Simulated assay, not measured.
Amino acid sequence: MSIPELLFSFRGRASRRTFWLWNAFYFLMIITVATLVKNLFPESDSMVLPVILVLLVIPDLAITGKRWHDRGKSLRWLVLHLPLVLTRFMIPVAEAGGNSNPLWCNL
């Protein structure tokens, strides 16, 4: 399977290795970009991370959907993944509200 098929197609299957490698890459990229932007451009950090998340939402859903398919589930099971995706979008918005503490410190 080619990289564009892997990242942008909802057809096919994804092995456990592919799924976990993608998730490791996904979260390392988000953490790295967020750290770099926060250190280099502190005034625009609340705008850059949501853009990165929007760019990565289709590949994330495609690989997750392929993994669900590999487990014998239909793409309808992606509905279970939507709260995670929405939470990722809400974290930069919550931190942009002027709160200097991480979101999990306010629970």
Rank of each mutant, 00 (worst) to 15 (best):
M1Y: 13
S2F: 05
P4A: 11
E5A: 12
L6C: 00
L7T: 08
S9N: 10
F10Y: 14
F10T: 13
R11Y: 11
R11M: 10
R13D: 03
R13L: 07
A14I: 00
S15I: 12
S15K: 12
R16Q: 06
R16T: 05
R17G: 06
R17F: 09
R17M: 06
T18H: 05
T18Q: 11
W20A: 06
L21I: 02
W22Y: 08
W22R: 00
N23R: 02
F27L: 10
L28N: 09
L28D: 05
L28W: 07
I30M: 13
I30T: 08
T32V: 09
V33D: 01
A34R: 05
T35Y: 15
L36F: 15
L36S: 12
L36Y: 15
V37W: 06
K38V: 06
N39K: 09
F41E: 13
P42T: 11
E43K: 14
E43V: 14
E43Y: 12
S44I: 12
S44N: 11
D45N: 13
D45H: 11
D45P: 03
V48S: 01
L49S: 10
P50S: 03
V51W: 03
I52D: 01
L53V: 07
V54L: 15
V54N: 09
L55P: 03
L55E: 07
V57D: 06
I58W: 14
P59G: 03
D60G: 09
D60Y: 04
A62R: 00
I63C: 03
G65C: 01
G65R: 00
K66V: 01
R67Q: 06
R67Y: 10
R67G: 01
W68D: 00
H69G: 10
D70R: 02
D70M: 04
R71I: 08
K73P: 04
L75W: 13
R76H: 15
W77D: 06
W77L: 10
W77R: 09
L78M: 11
V79Q: 02
V79I: 07
L80I: 14
L80R: 15
L80N: 14
L80P: 06
H81P: 00
H81Q: 04
L82G: 07
L82F: 10
L82Q: 08
L86S: 04
L86D: 02
L86N: 03
R88Q: 04
R88Y: 04
F89Y: 08
F89C: 04
F89R: 03
I91S: 01
I91N: 01
I91H: 01
I91M: 02
P92S: 03
P92W: 00
P92V: 01
V93A: 13
A94L: 11
A94S: 08
A94D: 03
A94G: 05
E95R: 14
E95Y: 12
A96V: 13
G98H: 09
G98I: 08
N99I: 08
S100A: 13
S100H: 13
P102E: 07
P102L: 10
P102C: 07
L103I: 15
W104N: 09
C105A: 13
